[in-house]
Amino acid sequence: MSSSAAQIAHAAVEYSTFASLRLGRTVQSVVARLIRFWDSRNVNKNGEFMGITLLLLDEMDSVIHAFIPANRASHYRPSLKAGCIVRLERFEVAQVAHMYKVTEHQFLIHFLPSTRLGEVHTDAPVIKSERFMMRRYDQLQVLANTNLELPDVVGEIRSVQGSDLSNDSATTRVVVRFLIEPNVTVYLTLWDEAASTFRGLLKSGDKSKAVMLVTTVNPKLFGG
Rank of each mutant, 00 (worst) to 15 (best):
I157E: 04
L23N: 06
V153W: 01
A9M: 12
I52T: 06
V63D: 01
L117D: 03
T216I: 00
R72I: 04
A66I: 07
F111G: 09
L213G: 11
S20L: 10
S166P: 00
E59Q: 14
L56I: 03
E156F: 06
L213E: 08
E59H: 15
F67R: 09
G83C: 08
E156T: 15
D138L: 12
T172V: 02
T189G: 02
G224D: 13
N71T: 02
T17C: 10
R173S: 09
V176A: 09
F132M: 13
E89T: 14
P113S: 03
A170Q: 11
Y187M: 06
V175G: 00
I109G: 02
Y187I: 00
I68Y: 09
G83T: 10
A144V: 04
A94P: 00
S40C: 05
D123C: 12
Y100T: 04
I52M: 07
S3W: 05
I180R: 00
V174L: 09
R135Y: 12
F222D: 05
G200C: 06
F18E: 00
P69G: 08
G51F: 06
S62I: 14
T189R: 13
L165M: 15
N218A: 13
R177M: 09
S204N: 09
Q139K: 11
R41F: 06
M212Y: 12
V93Y: 11
E149Q: 11
A11H: 05
L201P: 00
V214P: 09
S40V: 14
D123M: 11
L165Q: 05
